[in-house]
Amino acid sequence: MEQVLRRKEKGNLARAFYRFKKNPLSLIGLGIILTMVLIAIFAPFIAPYPGDAGGAVHFKEMFQSPSWKHSFGTDEVGRDVLSRIIFGSRISLTLGIVVLSVAVGVGIPLGLFAGYFGGKVETVIMRITDIFLSIPPLVLALVVTAVLERNLQNSMFAIAFTWWPWYARLAYGQTLSKKEEDFVEVSESLGASRLYIIFGEILPNMTSPLLVKITLDMGYAILAGAALGFLGLGAQPPTPEWGTLVSLGRIHLPKMWWLSTFSGLAIFVTVLGFNLLGDGLRDFFDVEVD
């Protein structure tokens, strides 16, 4: 029996891999993200001028258009734009990871409790979730940044503050459909504790939609972070945050086009990577995520 099951599982996995491989776009997405992660980790070794990541000043070299020496040109104080963008990958990826860790860490348990316990717990948690969802996320994030000091940490907090309700909703919906299933009933009748059933039985059974949503949301969280940076409500100069770089470069448009163009392109490629991979994973696991 066990062997049959295992063989079936293997068959499913093989089929899933086949689906994933058949979609060349998802492989491109995976490639983009792996590259970005490697760039972020090895930034000091890859960047041609690692010293330019912070507040360095080389007035002799300011506003140089792209050349062999500076492939993405230089900025208003002569820093190498490529080096700054390379270091910016660290900020955006960290932002995505932090925002989603908080959103998942807060939203998932709340959704699980609401779905599993029902009754008053459900009413309170889900109504609060509804209220959070009734203000467009970017607007809510703006209000949060309005009451806090403007820096990278607070912009991460602001985005996470608007992001958890989506995970509460996901976990809630999943729990409602899973808690009627046999494996939960069996655990219950064997006398397993409620916490064990919630975190040991129900939670592991929603990993695939969760993973798909997290992958897609990494891209969207990075976009949101860049948007706050662009509006001047996130990371502050000289931090080489991509959205901030676009915004600073905008002052010198259209002549110094390379300043905004390349940093925006970096955001676009990264977000695209997460979207392509997320879409591939959706086919792979064969799940629907809103």
């Binding site: 662009f230 955001i267 695209l272």
Partner: peptide, 27 residues
Amino acid sequence: SRVFAFAGVSFPRFWIGIMFQIGIAYT
């Protein structure tokens, strides 16, 4: 349309707006 759809959701709005400004409006 698939490629367009992926690009459409991945563009940073502020950046694509600036690109339009440089390309279509200015140039």
